[in-house]
Nucleic acid binder design. Structure first.
Lengths: 320, 320
DNA sequence: TTCCGTTCTGCACGTTTGTGCAAATTGCTT
DNA sequence: AAGCAATTTGCACAAACGTGCAGAACGGAA
């Protein structure tokens, strides 16, 4: 972090990536050891000084991407992963690639809405740093539940985003679901809450996963003590297939008349669709139902998902 | 270039650069050998699929860059090079970095004006591929001289630019200087020439070096049989310090009354200054006089130069 | 100044990556 | 179908790279 180290890292990065010198040659010019140069380059990469991106010309994008793109109208990034890998490993790789894909989209003065959940948590752990000015990270939905405040879990995610982009972090200190819709109405008039809602209304980027009701690997929302027995029955009887930021929808993307949403703290689908860039990260084919619903609802503009799930999506999609 | 190889390269690049797998792991997933993966990655880099760039946040840009930027109002990229290296090696490194710096600036449908000379020739040899559509490379000034047509030399440069960006190439088949201004006037009315002039008028990017009269290592223009004895005397008596694309200027940037310019085929300074992005590449401190003149004339918006020359520029600049 | 905790450095080693070469494959021609 | 030239592959080796560790350098606090 000291100034001269930073500028040495810049020099080293220029020589390595722009002039194709070996670390050895750079070490000699910088009068230091090769291992130091290796470390300088690591830090240049980590601090976002070196940006590596992959631009796949649309016309050479694989079949899979083209089909999903044309069917759902989203910008799609399929993460190549062997179908045989376990869920945890797949998640890790999707998250790594998602973090790197998001990086270039973040700009100065952006307001970035971030949901919480296993997927986004994994993404937050792989973010690479990029210096921006005046950016804000805003939490999309409350995280408290009946047993715990859930605050640390969600706030760790938020904090990691904040650090990566040098952004201010705005938490949303409310439960995930209110017990009574009237409490929500009351809270929504509180000025502290309104500040957060106002930021959400001005988001330029939203980042979220999806929850799926019939997932082998149930989302936090369905398993973590956020909903009680009667709530779960309610979901079943409303034909809910999944959620985005704790707001539920059916297979056709509709969400009207799902009473639980009146007690949820996430942004309504209508509001979410106002956001210019809405990035959905999905790992694991068991989320396919939730994912399809979210896409039908038009919640995402960008979709990052593993190859196996992408294949599922296409095989369903071709016979609607 | 075959389709499947291209998409294998894309997969490999995603796994390597976006998921941090080793080549070994990628080889296993792709059911091929590690060396093939190594080659796939090379081709992904060469074909411009992988873009590596270095974004130096302005506030941490080294002293040197800030001073030049504020003094001359150009966007400057100082290439770190030991002051002790010989000219040829310095040129090679400046050219490599220049080529990589130019890459990201080239877009589809761009019209790119390219001058010729030792510096730009070196740059052309280091270009990395980037696929664009509908771009055009247009030669800025004629290359013929009294002994040879100069065509192959200049056209090699042009061709390399064309290949790198998948662009159409428009040569400018005229001598560097006419013997008589009247011939130029006549030629300028030819439709074949007008097509080129029209393209030049619509350039979005211009790329050029500078010639310097008092360079140890004189430019092609001053040594290559383009000018005769009396021309050189003419330059001396007009206090010319250098040229850009065979159009001459004095130390203060002025070029009025330099009669040789009336016979030159390069774009007038006035015309050049219309171009949105004007990239000047300079290697070697002996070009300092020409460079200062070019900057005074406001010919460049972007300057790429080696560190030693940058230091010279600053030390002059601070005592104008 | 001396002490101690922290950060940085270079070494040595193991890992990862690039590349010349011969064999295998591909694509085209006859 | 067979032949041939051009390309691609895997091997084996050499070059380049990352990192744990011990010692050096640094930066306060006493």
């Amino acid at each position: 972090m000291p100034r001269s180290r930073h500028s040495e890292a810049l020099r080293a990065a220029q020589m390595y990536y722009l002039q194709d010198l070996t670390m050895d040659a750079i070490a000699r010019e910088l009068r230091t050891s090769r291992s130091t140069v290796s470390r300088l380059l690591s830090s240049a990469r980590e601090s976002g000084l070196v940006q590596i991106q992959i631009r796949s010309p649309l016309d050479s994008a694989p079949e899979l991407e083209r089909m999903i793109r044309s069917h759902y109208g989203v910008d799609v990034h399929v993460v190549p992963v062997l179908d045989t890998l376990n869920e945890a490993e797949t998640l890790d790789r999707v998250a790594t690639q998602a973090a790197r894909t998001i990086g270039p989209l973040v700009d100065s003065n952006a307001i970035i809405g971030v949901a919480w959940g296993a997927t986004i948590s994994a993404v937050s752990r792989h973010l690479t740093r990029k210096i921006t000015h005046g950016s804000t990270i805003v939490q999309l939905n409350g995280a408290g539940n009946m047993q715990t405040t859930g605050i640390t879990y969600a706030s760790d995610i938020m904090r990691r985003f904040g650090i990566a982009y040098g952004a201010r972090v705005e938490q949303f200190p409310v439960p995930a679901f209110f017990d009574h819709a009237s409490t929500k109405t009351a809270m929504w008039n509180e000025r502290s809450v309104q500040r957060v809602l106002d930021l959400q209304a001005r988001m330029s980027i939203a980042i979220f996963g999806v929850g799926s009701v019939h997932s082998d690997y149930p989302s936090h929302v369905y398993a973590g003590g956020y909903l009680d027995e009667s709530d779960l029955n309610l979901l079943a009887s409303s034909e809910v297939v999944g959620d985005v930021a704790t707001v539920f929808f059916r297979a056709d993307g509709s969400s009207d008349g799902i009473t639980l949403n009146e007690r949820s703290t996430g942004p309504s689908h209508e509001q979410l669709r106002q956001v210019r860039r809405r990035i959905c990260v999905v790992s694991g084919a068991s989320k396919i139902n939730g994912l399809r619903g979210a896409l039908e609802a038009g919640l995402a503009t960008d979709l990052i998902l593993d190859e196996a799930t992408a294949k599922q999506l296409v095989s369903f999609g071709s016979a609607p």
